[in-house]
């Protein structure tokens, strides 16, 4: 079990997800795949309460930052959106089509 998140248990943390979302929440629990159990989940930009409790798949997590002094962490509306980390390839299906064709030829 990853010991790294232990220090954050019960604290307010900032979470950035692969979708490019940014939340502030209290870390209630986690497991070794960094699946997170969160409570009091708020959007970082406007502090809107999104959920009282939430589990977040570890594969969605990019970073968890410990919020200094447990401050509220509202940033304001004009925060620019984060990029997601999915690295979507434009028209990826075309590439796969090519790959498949090449394979069939082989």
């Amino acid at each position: 079990m990853s010991p790294l998140l232990k220090d954050y248990l019960g604290q307010r943390i900032v979470i950035i997800t692969t979708e490019g979302e940014c939340y502030v929440a209290t870390l209630e629990g986690y497991d070794k795949s960094v699946n997170l159990l969160l409570s009091n989940v708020r959007r970082r930009s406007d502090d809107e309460l999104l959920s009282i409790a939430l589990t977040l798949r570890g594969s969605e997590v990019v970073v968890c930052g410990l919020l200094s002094n447990n401050e509220v962490g509202k940033l304001g509306e004009e925060v620019p959106a984060l990029k997601d980390t999915k690295n979507k390839v434009q028209d990826e299906y075309l590439i796969w089509e090519e790959v498949l064709k090449a394979r069939l030829i082989k």
């Binding site: 079990m1 990853s2 010991p3 790294l4 232990k6 220090d7």
Partner: peptide, 8 residues
Amino acid sequence: PQGMQGIP
């Protein structure tokens, strides 16, 4: 210390 903490 963290190794220690790693154990629930």
